[in-house]
Design a protein around this nucleic acid. Structure first.
Lengths: 165, 165
DNA sequence: ATGAGTGCAAAAAGTTTGCACCGCT
DNA sequence: AGCGGTGCAAACTTTTTGCACTCAT
């Protein structure tokens, strides 16, 4: 995935999660730690199934069940650590929502690549529109679809993650 | 739903659908006609289940099965008559994509209301961004989430379609 | 101890599909 | 005739949930 650079963060994701859980009288269990570590090991977009695949097949003591993955993803979302960015192949796609700048995505219809981009004007415009409708904006989700640069040069058959039939 | 005004259309949806079907060696059956008529009877956002409910309970000769509704929605999408605008309550929400201006939506988290808005600058910005990344933009989906004007005045308990628990 | 959390299997919910029959062209 | 379309029920996918057991605090 093409990504923007990270922002300096004072508190690490695990810390922030613990913090959030504390306010909810919830516990930071071994399973939840494993999940946070795995999720924040790299700034990749992912879906629940991919995470389940990685965590439920571990043979050591770090295995986590499918149910717990789903339940924890929901907590991480509430904690502001993750957010759903898009939906692809009938699955919700998650990304880090902590320690990274606000941004939107270009989604290639051919290879599925998600490219992040930032545009300050965009938010200004949305603020204006919301104000105009008396709408209290809390967030947005913008997916620009089309064909990415790599896939636009067909001769070399550059970039086809989606060849899976 | 709050909506924008219609654009003058030369060809009616049924005509356009027939046209499309022709190019695909497909047929405009009685069932498909019933569905197009129902779908374009009003400019409302809807999901498959709502359409199924309306069409599968008819007692006269105009009943259409669930399968056919799903299959035809897919055709209407390919024909450029409908598009998925959002996902609400785990269902895809459709709207007319023919005879109506391009626009985006404000989605109220409380009542679920979809409000359409138009902003020319938005598209310009996306064009620029796409160009910058060598991305061939084909479309976009923008959902602005927050609280609508009606739901922002809680005392009167104005507007709560989602009170369904 | 005590109530939150986990894993499992079963259940939901939305959507898709195999198949036998139907009906345009 | 031939092929596309329909309806039904069963299958599938992703996500959620009931329950008995486990464990963090």
């Amino acid at each position: 995935m093409k990504e923007l650079s990270a922002i300096a963060v004072d508190v690490t994701p695990p810390d922030r999660f613990r913090e959030y859980l504390g306010t909810q009288a919830k516990r930071l269990t071994r399973e939840r730690s494993i999940i946070v570590d795995e999720v924040f090991a790299s700034h990749e977009h992912f879906d629940a199934e991919q995470l389940v695949a990685r965590l439920s097949q571990r043979t050591d003591g770090n295995r986590v069940s499918r149910s717990t993955v789903y339940r924890t993803l929901a907590e991480l979302e509430k904690a502001g650590l993750l957010r759903k960015v898009a939906r692809s192949n009938d699955r919700e796609i998650y990304e880090h929502d902590y320690g990274y700048p606000q941004h939107d995505h270009l989604i290639c219809k051919k290879c599925g690549e998600l490219t992040e981009f930032q545009n300050p004007e965009l938010n200004e415009i949305l603020q204006q529109v919301a104000a105009q409708y008396g709408f209290r904006m809390e967030g947005h989700r913008l997916e620009v679809s089309g064909i990415c640069a790599a896939c636009s040069r067909p001769p070399s058959r550059g970039h086809r993650k989606l060849d899976m039939i």
